[in-house]
């Protein structure tokens, strides 16, 4: 990375500078409103409650921040199948594929997700790139096409996402910290001819990752119009090839939704297998969510 242990004081001053910058950006965001979300995260990210905007460990981070793939190191692809709200008579299902190709000029990233329920088909496709601009700073950008199809009615739209990650460095000899920021859904249009379009409004996310001794902790805070969300995830190695993951999410809108997440990851040669379970404290009556994922790294 080119960052020396012992840079703690400098790292703290940079944290303050970035915090102030992001507060100013946040104040410039106009509050808007959206009704539903397209979720592209897979089994890895779900186990960590979606706290992935600063994570460089999985290709699934492309759904949360365009920048981390710049530091992913190796090309990889991952696919997830999930069942949402298992307590429903006909549960919606979600499928997603994420990929990152690392080259000498940067990382190319792609993602595709579908959410299917009776009479409803939702799709998301993203393409983007990311690049390390300095030893501490990496930047990424994406274009994303979201659309839904409800039989005779369908809509789609394009939005853009930009993000960065910033290597704060070693706070102590064993603790490494990085930060991230994402501005998502740039160019979304919430209304057309006086009617709501179903697009998600612009959102801003700030995140932090703390690593050390085979453990990783992530925290993301996202503001989307008048709603906000706090996501936290924790990953620890049980063995060299077996990881356990825990996460929690607090989503505050007109009502509050709290969810708990847990999962396992297993690595075998170049393959990665992931499972995630999530359950809502407030909407548990609709059942839990299960996601299974498989990935390949080369």
């Amino acid at each position: 990375m080119g960052i020396k242990a012992g840079d703690g004081e400098h790292a703290l001053s940079r944290i303050r500078a970035w915090s102030i910058s992001w507060i100013l950006v946040w104040c410039a965001v106009q509050p808007t409103f959206a009704a539903f979300e397209v979720g592209g995260g897979g089994a890895y990210s779900s186990a960590l409650a979606g706290a992935l905007s600063t994570s460089v460990e999985s290709v699934e981070s492309v759904w949360f921040n365009p920048a981390p793939s710049a530091r992913i190191g190796t090309s990889s692809v991952s696919s997830t199948h999930g069942t949402l709200w298992s307590g429903l008579e006909e549960s919606p299902s979600v499928h997603s594929v994420s990929g990152a190709w690392v080259s000498r000029w940067g990382t190319v990233q792609v993602g595709y997700v579908t959410l299917r329920a009776q009479g409803w088909d939702e799709k998301g496709l993203l393409v983007g790139g990311s690049r390390v601009l300095s030893p501490r700073f990496a930047l990424g950008a994406q274009v994303q096409r979201n659309g839904w199809d409800a039989g005779r009615l369908a809509r789609h739209h394009w939005v853009g996402n930009v993000g960065f990650i910033y290597e704060a460095g070693w706070l102590t000899r064993k603790t490494y910290v990085r930060f991230s920021g994402v501005l998502a859904n740039i160019g979304s249009s919430l209304r057309n001819a006086g009617r709501r379009t179903g697009q998600r409004p612009r959102s801003i996310t700030v995140g932090m990752q703390v690593m050390g001794n085979g453990r990783v902790g992530n925290v993301d805070w996202r503001l989307e119009a008048d709603r906000w969300e706090l996501r936290a995830g924790y990953e620890s190695e049980l063995r060299d090839d077996l990881m356990v993951r825990l996460g929690g999410r607090l989503y505050v809108a007109e009502t509050v939704n709290r969810t708990g997440h847990a999962g396992l990851g297993y690595e075998w040669r170049n393959l990665r297998f992931d499972y995630a379970f999530s359950h809502s404290y407030d909407l548990g009556k609709f059942g839990a969510q299960h996601r299974f994922g498989v990935g390949y790294v080369w």
């Binding site: 009704a35 539903f36 709200w85 959410l115 409803w120 409800a150 709501r196 179903g198 609709f286």
Partner: peptide
């Protein structure tokens, strides 16, 4: 207000 297009539980 009329809700957004989408899937609802």
């Amino acid at each position: 207000q009329t809700v957004d297009p989408g899937l609802y539980l």
